[in-house]
Design a protein around this nucleic acid. Structure first.
Lengths: 347, 347
DNA sequence: TTGTATGCGTTATCAG
DNA sequence: CTGATAACGCATACAA
């Protein structure tokens, strides 16, 4: 059974194929009566425009490429998973496709950019986990390819004069909320376990904790022994809690930069104190500890908005101005859980 | 800067554009001298065939569609993640692209099948988590669309007369190996925590445990109190271990159908016995318990072999023909870990 | 509002 | 072994 083409529809509806094309692309230009007749024919023949033909004609693929990160080592791997799902779902609503690719390193990724755009497979990219001075973003800017990053450029003035379009989750406010919640629950000595500086994301989250504590009356000096930096990982989180207690003595609660660290701290704490994580991974849900949830559907929405510009639907061509702010900062929210699986039971 | 086309290359090399096409698609038909000249021109102009044009002409998209499962609730969500990565990477080597889509339910997924194939976006599908009497596979078969499933059809005779192409991991042998390993380490009373019947995957894994135990001398009757079925989840795993001990008394070790269950059991066991999981998720690695690893790159490889063989694809290596069987059963392997983070420390 | 002609970049056919 | 010609399905000026 051959796929029906626009010509079949035209014949069936008794119009020219041009009219069919108009019904599809600019319905306003066709008289309602004819339009309806054409649409009926389309439905009867189960006609679908041939994507490749359309792309060849329009010179746009309506496809966005995203690199599948190999770094699945962490507990937080599921974040990319969920983000991908949200992105795909919302892209679909805008008639955009999501194409996957992989790359070994930033240079290889640039090679893929070139390959995918040269072949017109993709006409925009979504980048995750960018860093300061990222060669990928510079290459994309130099080559005038549309892209949005999930993550700030971490440049001089990201808000008012960003180097490129970006969407990010406000880790600062996330940790601030987590800390404030613990303070509100009566905890005083709240520690923080995070990553070593300099780290855009890490420093931002630590600042959220620090400012919430400062508002509760803590001085910079008193806060100093209450935080500790470590690499990502469960064992590292456990170790960090021990170091924290060694340096600061008794602690009432602890907030962490990630669920991995939180899990480690939780194990080390053995129920002595509440632990709050970040990312709200399945692990947090399973073990019943609070965690900061990133609204990934909002992130995906923001990315697509930025990508398609004001006139949703197609990816904006280069040179086309995007009207509104060139970024979206999404506020996360704390998911509070009070039923710790790990510490609650005793044999 | 306009993309260079095949015509530009032809002019630069002083040949007709057809010759360029031949150099690309059937190099054998072009004289080496000319071929080299053309290839130099291609390199100089950084020419890449326009994917859409080629697809329009060949009526093949060289793209495989895969649904992004929404069920990321479990700890094992990262399995799909890793599989996707492996699939994308290997598809790339075969010049295939991977396109994502989402669907709310099987019916919606069928709608997406129709949409994606009608638009010629995709010409084959990869299905995950199939079940007995799956409407999706039936629809694809009825419409003669190429597809391979990750997971057996769970029909009458999957091995010799499968309903469709499939690749699966041999959960039976995985659990068998896990159990044998524990037996070899001197454990006698080894319990099993799995999912309720009927479940193709679940029953298969339980059989692995059962037969390993039978070989060690256990009778069906004696084995009965040593296994328990529960829904997926960490809390469920913990509960299951308690039920197991209540029914069977002292237990030496326990093997589980998933890392989620294993994590629950591990928490409930509090270091009293070794626990072995399935999927080798980051959680297993972080907490230091053994788990059965699914070789997802092998799975991806098998899927692509079956797929390219199915729609007249290329030869795999050195002119070797792809072998006959319409399926691949991949053997997993146990990753042994002896450094439990959870049970090892005491305050 | 509708129809006609043309080309997007590629590959297949079939002639030299 | 090479080169001219004809589609693939669609969308857009332009004419009616």
């Amino acid at each position: 059974m051959r796929q029906s083409t626009i010509l079949d529809v035209a014949r069936a509806a008794g119009v020219s194929r041009q009219t069919v094309s108009n019904v599809l692309n600019s319905p306003g230009r066709v008289r309602p009566a004819t339009r309806e007749r054409v649409q009926r024919a389309i439905a009867e023949l189960a006609y679908r425009p041939h994507a490749s033909a359309r792309r060849l004609r329009t010179q746009k693929s309506s496809t966005i490429g995203i690199r599948l990160d190999p770094m699945t080592d962490g507990i937080s791997g599921s974040v990319l998973d969920r983000f991908l799902h949200a992105l795909t779902e919302q892209a679909d609503a805008k008639r955009l496709r999501v194409l996957l690719f992989t790359a070994k390193d930033p240079d290889d990724e640039i090679l893929q950019f070139r390959r995918l755009t040269a072949g017109a497979d993709v006409d925009a990219f979504v980048l995750t986990s960018t860093f300061h001075g990222d060669p990928r973003t510079e290459w994309l800017i130099d080559n005038a390819l549309p892209f949005v990053t999930f993550g700030r450029p971490w440049g001089i003035d990201d808000m008012n004069d960003p180097k490129h379009l970006w969407v990010d989750v406000d880790g600062y406010s996330g940790l601030r909320e987590a800390t404030t919640h613990l303070l509100g629950a009566g905890h005083r000595r709240i520690g923080y376990i995070g990553w070593p500086s300099p780290s855009g994301t890490g420093d931002d989250r630590r600042r959220g904790w620090r400012e919430a504590m400062a508002e509760a009356g803590w001085s910079e000096a008193d806060l100093e022994p209450l935080h500790v930096a470590t690499e990502e990982g469960v064992a590292q989180g456990a170790d960090a809690l021990h170091r924290l207690e060694a340096a600061a003595g008794a602690i009432d609660a602890v907030v962490c930069a990630s669920d991995s660290l939180a899990l480690g701290a939780l194990i080390a704490a053995r129920g002595r104190m509440p632990v709050v994580g970040y990312d709200n991974t399945p692990i947090a849900a399973s073990l019943g500890f609070s965690s900061v949830e990133q609204p990934l559907d909002k992130v995906a929405e923001g990315i697509l908005e930025l990508l398609t510009g004001a006139h949703g639907g197609r990816v904006s061509r280069d040179g086309e101005q995007v009207s509104d702010p060139r970024h979206r900062l999404i506020a996360p929210h704390l998911v509070v859980r009070d039923a710790p699986v790990l510490s609650g039971e005793h044999s």
